[in-house]
Structures are given as structure tokens and as C-alpha cells.
Amino acid sequence: MSRSRSFALAFATLLAASAPAAAQLLPLGRAAMPAEIAAWDIDVRPDGQGLPAGKGSVKDGERLFLEQCAACHGEFGEGAGRWPPVAGGRGSLKSENPEKTPGSYWPFASTIFDYVRRAMPFGNAQSLGPDDVYAITAFLLFMTDVVGEDFVLSNANFASVKLPNADGFRDDDRETAEKQFWGREPCMKDCKTEVKVLGHARALDVTPGEKKGPKVD
């Protein structure tokens, strides 16, 4: 052991002894290195925290999308077969068949960037570089009329992108909005006079064994 190394060690021990909280620390685990944190810490927040430096255009995004995404999500993001759509659905949230896509439903553009970067393309995740993800995000924003076709998305202008349904969410309010479900003394005797069967699962016949069925997510 070199002189300076042993000195450093002794110093560290001294330091540890003088800081009571650190002294109680069990010797379990080791310090995470900056390079290790950087390798795993790829999450992006709505305020832009976590965005890597980079940029990408709608045009490049279209090319990448056709190459790597359209087979499942459709050329226009409409979803091929039962694969999920990633565009369309604007104005459908109150309808009988709401279509929830980044453009119609998601509150924040950061979620598109974050999710595509960590999980897509399905089966070859984490293969896209930052510029590719900027370009694909720009293309998805273009597909739902949030940006124009000449748009170039970057870490510098990311915060300017607002999604149409940003205000469509509220925090869990079940305890007030559904307070009637608490504290009731439920009826035990002669609670109804008649009971009618309103619907049978059998009428639909979608229990496994059948191929057809309604859409769910």
C-alpha cells in the first residue's frame, strides 16, 4: 500500500469516527459511482429534469418510426391489429370508446420521451440514442397536432411543449367523492322485493376458448 493511500484510509477512519451518524453505519453496500448512476438514471420528469442533451426532427422521427415502430403501432400510429395505438383519439375521452394516446390523454410530453427511451421498441429496448428518442417524440407530437412538421425537439425547447390533456387529471379523491361507501349499516333482511337478471356473461361468450372479444388495455 502506498504511503498516500494508507494516509487517506487512516484519514477516512478518523473522519468516520468523528461523525456519529456515519460511525453507526453497518459495512453493507458500497458507494454508487457516478458512472453507474449515469448508466441507470435515465428517467425524465415533466419539468425536464433528467433530459439528456440532444435534438431530433419530426422528419427524422417519421423515418425511425416507420423503420422501428410502425410494424406494431401502424404507419399513422393507429395500432396494427391488437397492438396499442400511439396517436389519434383526440376528443374521445367522454365517448363510449375512449382512445387514450399520448396526444389524447397523456398529461406530459416527458412521459413519451422517458417511456420510449426505456421500453421501446418492444423486444429491443434501450437501443435508441438520445437524438433518436427526441426525433421519435417530435414525430408522435406531430401525429397528434401538437407541433408542426418542421419542428425540431431538443432539451432546450422541451419545456415549451404542452399536451392537450395536461389538465385532465386530479389526485385520488375517493375518500370525499365516494364517502357514501363508508359507515353505512347495510340492510340484512327484506332488502328488495324483486330481483331481475339484467345481463349474462354467456350472451357474450368471450370466456377463454373464444377468440373474439372486446378491447381492453
Partner: peptide
């Protein structure tokens, strides 16, 4: 962080077109 599984999914769309999150 408003990740995909707490925005696109696992939010509860109500009849008025608005959704509950963090349920």
C-alpha cells in the same frame, strides 16, 4: 415522475372525460 404507468395507465377515466390519478 409521472411515468407511463401512472399517466397513460393506472389512472381512472371518469364519465366527464377527466381522470383520477394516484389512486
Amino acid at each position: 415522475w409521472h411515468q407511463r404507468e401512472e399517466t397513460s395507465k393506472y389512472t381512472d377515466l371518469l364519465a366527464d372525460g377527466r381522470a383520477r390519478r394516484f389512486t
